[in-house]
Design a protein around this nucleic acid. Structure first.
Lengths: 221, 221
DNA sequence: CGAGACCTGCACAGAACCTTCACGAGTCAT
DNA sequence: ATGACTCGTGAAGGTTCTGTGCAGGTCTCG
C-alpha cells in the first residue's frame, strides 16, 4: 500500500488486514521500491500523487523488475491520467473518493486472477455472542438465522464488530465505511444505524449520547 | 501537544495521559520541531496560533520530515484557516472551545488508523474497589451493576478516577472536562458532582472544603 | 425502458442534557 | 458563639443531540 497521506494509507491498510490480507505500507516513491524488493508482494496499491517520484514512475520500475498486478488510486477523475497509468502497466484504477468495499472487491478480483489460493485466505468471521459476521462471505447471522443486510449496512456492522464495545464516532464510522472523512452535519450514519438496528435488534447497537455508537459485546438476549 | 497557553496545554495533556497516552509538551514553533525530532510521536496536536512560527508552518515542516497524523486546534471557526491547514497536511480540525471528550475521540480515531496497538493501550479500564470505569466503552459499574452516566458525568468521573484520592479543584476539573478554563463563579461543577454522587453513591466523592473534590480510593461499601 | 433496491440527506419532534440561580445548610477562624 | 465564606440542592430554562419518516436520486437488472 503506497500512499503518502497517513489517514488514507492506514484506513485502507486496516480494512485489508481486517479482510485477512497481509499488508505492508510505504509513503513515497523510494520507499515503495524498497518495500517491493524486500517483501515481494502479490499486488501493489499505488497512489498516483507521491513524494519522491510519482505513482506512474513507481509502477514502471516495479513492473520492470517483476510483473505484478497494480491497482492505482488517483485523486482526479482524469482520463489522461488513467491512460498513462495503463500505459505503464497498471491493471486497474480507482478514483478518490472511493468506497472501501469497492477497493476490497477490486483487490480480491485482481488477486483471484493471479492466484486462486489468495482468495481463500480471506476467510475471517467474527462472533459476538449470538451475532456472527463473515466478512469474506459478506453475511451475518443472529442466533443462527441469517439476516439480509444491504452493502452499507454490512460495512457498518463490520466496522462496529471489529471494535466490539468501543464507542466509534459518526466521523469514525463514516471515514471507515465510506473511505473518506466528511460526514459531519448529515444524518447519513444515523439512518443506516437505524436500518441496521431494525435487522439485528435495536439493543445491539448502543447509542452514546454526544459521542457515537458502539456494538454491544457478546450478550445473548 | 503544542500549545502556548499553559492552562489548555496542561489540561489536554492531563486528560490524554489519563486516557493512557504518553504525551510530551511544547509551547512554541521551534520547541515543537525540536520535540518532534526528539520523541518521534505517533500524532501531533497543534495549536494554530503559536509564538515563533505558527501551526501551519510547524505542520508543514514536520510533514516534510515524516508523515504523521496532525490534529489542528484553532480559535476561530475560520474556513480559510481550515483549508490552509488541510493544505499543509493536517488530518483533522477542532475549533475552540472544544469538549475534551471530543478531542479524545478524535485523537483515538486518528491513532486507530495509524496503529491498531495504540488503541488497545487506551482500553485501560480503571478499577477502584467495586467501582469500575471503562474509558473506551464509556461505561461505568458499581458493584457489577452498570450505571448510566451522562457524557459530562462520565468525563468527570474519568477525571477523578485518573487521580484516585487526590483532590482536584473545580478549576482543575472544569479545565479538564470542558477543555478551557473559566468556571470560576458558577456552580456547574457542583451540579454535576451532585448528579454523579446520586448515581455512584454519595460517599464516593469526597468534598474538601475550600479546595475541591476527590474520589475515594478503593473502598468497598 | 421500467421496476426494484438502495443510498442520502433533510426537517421535525422529542428526548437527553447542561447551565445557572437563589437560598438554606454547613464549615471554619476568631 | 458569630460572622464570613463555602457547599448542597431543587427547579427552571435553554441548548444540543438523536430517532424517525420521507422524498429525491442513483444504480442494477431484467
Amino acid at each position: 500500500m503506497v500512499e503518502d497521506e497517513p489517514v488514507i494509507n492506514q484506513a485502507v491498510t486496516d480494512r485489508l488486514r481486517g479482510s485477512g490480507y497481509e499488508v505492508v505500507q510505504a509513503w513515497d516513491g523510494p520507499g515503495a521500491i524498497a518495500q517491493f524488493a524486500d517483501t515481494a508482494p502479490d499486488l501493489v496499491l499505488l497512489d498516483v500523487m507521491l513524494p519522491g517520484f510519482d505513482g506512474h514512475e513507481v509502477c514502471r520500475r516495479i513492473q520492470a523488475e517483476r510483473p505484478v498486478p497494480v491497482l492505482m488510486l488517483t485523486a482526479r477523475d482524469d482520463e489522461a491520467d488513467i491512460l498513462v497509468g495503463l500505459g505503464v502497466g497498471a491493471d486497474d484504477y480507482l478514483t478518490k473518493p472511493f468506497r472501501m468495499r469497492e477497493l476490497v472487491a477490486r483487490v480480491a478480483a485482481l488477486l483471484r486472477r493471479v492466484d486462486r489460493a489468495a482468495e481463500l485466505a480471506v476467510r475471517s468471521a467474527t462472533e459476538l455472542g449470538d451475532l456472527r459476521v463473515d466478512g469474506a462471505a459478506r453475511r451475518a447471522w443472529v442466533a443462527d438465522t441469517e439476516v439480509h443486510l444491504t452493502p452499507t449496512e454490512f460495512d457498518l456492522l463490520l466496522c462496529l464488530a471489529a471494535n466490539p464495545g468501543i464507542v466509534l464516532t459518526r466521523d469514525n464510522l463514516y471515514a471507515e465505511v465510506w473511505g473518506w472523512p466528511g460526514a459531519s452535519g448529515t444524518r447519513t450514519v444515523d439512518s443506516h444505524v437505524k436500518a441496521l438496528r431494525a435487522k439485528i435488534g435495536a439493543n445491539r447497537v448502543r447509542t452514546v449520547h454526544g459521542v457515537g455508537y458502539a456494538l454491544e459485546p457478546g450478550r445473548a438476549k
